[in-house]
Nucleic acid binder design. Sequence first.
DNA 1: TGTTTTTTGAACGAGTTTGATCATATTGTT
DNA 2: AACAATATGATCAAACTCGTTCAAAAAACA
Lengths: 261, 261
Amino acid sequence: MPRVDRIPPQRHAAILEHLRANGAASIQELTGALAASPSTVRRDLDYLAERGYVERTHGGATLSASSTEVESSITSHIAQKEKAAIGRLAVSWVKANMTIIFDSGTTVLEAARAIADSNLPITAVTNDLGIAQILGSNGRNQVIVPGGTLRPGSQTLLGNPGAAFLRGIHVDLAFLGTHAITDNLLTDSSLDLAEVKRAMIEAARHVVVLADSNKFGPTCSFDICTLAEIDEVISDSRLSDMDRTATEAHGVKVSIARVGE
Amino acid sequence: MPRVDRIPPQRHAAILEHLRANGAASIQELTGALAASPSTVRRDLDYLAERGYVERTHGGATLSASSTEVESSITSHIAQKEKAAIGRLAVSWVKANMTIIFDSGTTVLEAARAIADSNLPITAVTNDLGIAQILGSNGRNQVIVPGGTLRPGSQTLLGNPGAAFLRGIHVDLAFLGTHAITDNLLTDSSLDLAEVKRAMIEAARHVVVLADSNKFGPTCSFDICTLAEIDEVISDSRLSDMDRTATEAHGVKVSIARVGE
DNA sequence: TGTTTTTTGAACGAGTTTGATCATATTGTT
DNA sequence: AACAATATGATCAAACTCGTTCAAAAAACA
């Protein structure tokens, strides 16, 4: 018998607000404040605890030491399942103690999430604040942030000192995102982003591009590189055979992540 | 016959708060203050003693000598209301289009939250991932992250390239956090953190330390600087007159944030 | 519109926390 | 040194929380 006064994100926000004001809250308190049943409150707290916003305790929860609004509830749920599948498959490229560059973007973020769950210890280099937090939240990984200026409306750092820093490192692997793969070109919608990505490609011995099938076809204004400069692409099962063979024709290995699993 | 008015972490926090105020506490006192039975108080004290926060004595407990280094898992939210009040007051130091350094830590984070809510556009420099996200989430601010290696279990970046970057900038204002203010010294629990804070002090024309009243008294291992090198302190109304006059005696202006607002 | 998927609230057994009780140990006083 | 007063730790039942399951209600989808 659901009686929905608020949708889940509203409840989550209200809980976080309550916690921020008081530092801790009991289930009873929240049940009253949200006009929801204890079961729902418990589910909400579990949800928030899973992503590190709060710490669960008997009878309630406390504010997690490192809680911020990492999650942009705005993230387009378009192709979410595909991105998650790509992220899970990306784990098989990772071996313990590798040093890996993580580009910004939601697909790469899913890969970071999967790798954090995999318990493989790595050294990560990333300019994405959300990815840095995910990889840093389990104490196993060393996380290095090159730094830069936050790109408005995103979680990505651009420019210096990060750009200069990237030119001085060499890593095993880079997981790259892109806005569009057209023909022989990887392109992006921001000149600064494209420049950072180029630096990442230079710094990595092996470059893997994570791109859901929607990225194939459209084109953006700013070139990152040609397909010849990357080694592999991971995409999802909705990639057309045409796009796949066109990509492979440039010497790039294409792997497909299946959503079911 | 349990009658849960507070969940365990809230009781633990309240006990530590009580101990910090009085140095010691009897079981009777705590029984009254927590509205819990002596058995429960004893169990709580045993819990806190096991992890080194307090020392058990007959009839009560005292504050453990080395409690400031370890804390934050339990005490991170004890002075939540005070920290929020300090953060709100900090907004009055901010003018539009200032460039401001934000140190890491929960108190400074509250200031960032208040400033983000205030709609004043600023340029922010911070090595705290959470603060960067808060200030970046409203599109008004320019946010610069110097970069570095993520400190395990926190949201703070340490080391290079950020340290070098900080040495090359000059800003209007710095909001600094600290783990302890003793006598004439600001100290912190990590050598690297202390070094970053020193660099921030060097880079700022005006240094404001945000420290709730619990930070006064205890001491940590690593010196940041003497009080002479900072300009102001913002604390809460539970700051003792003794600590206040001692701080002002070193030429530091002390402002008090009222919780009621 | 009808169907599928997700979300919600209730119910139940299992596990945890809490407060009272009581024999024992500790402290302070005579 | 003996005594009274109090704190302690163990034990136990009551109350509460937890995780799971399940059916009904929304929401999403076709």
